[in-house]
Computed example of a mutant assay.
Amino acid sequence: MTTPFTDADTELTEHNGTHLLRVAPNTADHRAWFSANAQALRSAMYEHAAVMVKASGLADEAELAPIAEEIGGRTLEYNERSTPRSRVTGKVYTSTEYPQDQTIAQHNESAYSQNWPHNVFFFCARAAETGGETPVADSAAVLRALPADLVRRFEDRGGVLYTRTYRTGMGLSWQEGFQSDDKGYVESYCADHGIETAWDGDVLRTRQQRPAVAVHPVTGRKVWFNQAHLFHVHALPEAVREGLLEICGEDGLPRNAYYGDGTPITADEIATIRGVYDDRTLAEPWRTGDVLMIDNILTSHGRRPFTGERKVVVAMTQREAA
């Protein structure tokens, strides 16, 4: 059972193994409420993975970081980027800046990196006119639903190999991806974080092998934790995929994913993974002022298309090692 909350009403929603706990504070002093309930919120994320605080009382994006730090640990810079974002203030960023008519597929934040966040905190500064939800899916439920032979292939073949090509004008440049225009710094960062590099003038190609499955360090739950289905070339619309392959060739794609030993992941396997995510996705409509907090290992998140103006900002945190 979730640790009792002080001055709040709670309601739990479940869909195919994915849970979302809604918490509604009954106080006007929102900063004091978050402080008083920090442990309860941490416990609720371990138990349910995703917690949404309705009508949180936050009115300024800058308020998100100190609340995130009190609950989740130190806030992180958004480095080793795979999508475009902008800094709002301090270590608070915009959510992924993709066109509003596009869906952002389910993913565990930065699962391709050695430096992924333990928690992600979202604050809805302006709710969209329609749509724009941030759906979640339980990573353990996803793992249980995937075909056992598919999971075994990923584990036996060394997880996932992520490949990227950074070039100006097609995807992210290496300067944006690593937040630096110093090639020496990028080389050092990659060497320290298990990333192979190859330069062709100002074009950078990288390869990094990461697990497909993880075990949560606190709960012990085994989960599906990777972005193979997001990086893979078959995640792209057919016309875009064919155009990129014609221009860049497979070795020059902005990003792609293979089994960890470099063997191809088939289009059917990617479709199976995405279908399991779709079946276990749960979404709560945003209202201006809501805060969503997730355990990034235990749950994935995405974004649905929307109309009108929408502003959701993000802070990512990491707990100190025990």
Rank of each mutant, 00 (worst) to 15 (best):
M1L: 10
D9E: 09
H15I: 11
G17F: 11
T18V: 04
L20E: 10
A32S: 11
S35N: 09
N37F: 02
A44R: 07
A44M: 07
Y46V: 08
A49K: 15
A49T: 15
V53H: 03
K54S: 11
A55D: 12
G57C: 04
E63F: 07
I67H: 04
G72I: 14
R74S: 15
T75I: 10
E77K: 14
Y78N: 05
Y78V: 06
Y78S: 07
N79P: 02
R85A: 07
R87C: 09
T89L: 09
G90E: 05
S95C: 02
T96W: 01
Y98H: 12
Y98A: 08
P99F: 01
T103I: 08
I104L: 15
A105Q: 12
A105M: 13
H107Y: 05
A111M: 10
A111V: 10
F121C: 09
C124F: 03
R126P: 00
A127D: 04
E129C: 01
E129D: 14
T130S: 15
G132V: 02
E133R: 13
P135Q: 04
S139M: 09
A140E: 15
R144T: 15
A148F: 00
R152N: 05
T163D: 09
T165P: 01
G171H: 05
L172K: 04
S173T: 09
W174N: 00
E176A: 10
Q179P: 02
D181Y: 13
D182W: 07
C190N: 08
T197R: 01
A198V: 06
D200M: 04
V203M: 02
T206K: 02
T206L: 03
A212K: 02
A214I: 05
V215D: 08
V215S: 10
V218M: 12
G220P: 14
G220C: 13
R221W: 08
F225P: 11
Q227K: 02
A228L: 10
H229E: 14
H229Q: 15
H229A: 14
H234R: 06
L236C: 00
L236T: 00
E238P: 00
V240W: 00
R241H: 00
L245W: 00
G249H: 03
G249M: 05
G249P: 07
D251W: 08
D251K: 12
D251Q: 14
P254L: 01
P254C: 01
R255Y: 13
N256W: 04
A257R: 03
Y258Q: 06
Y259H: 14
D261H: 04
G262T: 12
G262Q: 09
P264W: 00
I265Q: 04
D268W: 00
D268I: 01
G275H: 10
D278L: 14
T281P: 03
L282H: 05
A283L: 06
E284K: 00
G289C: 08
M293A: 14
N296P: 03
E309Q: 12
R310N: 08
Q318R: 15
R319P: 04
E320K: 12
A321V: 13
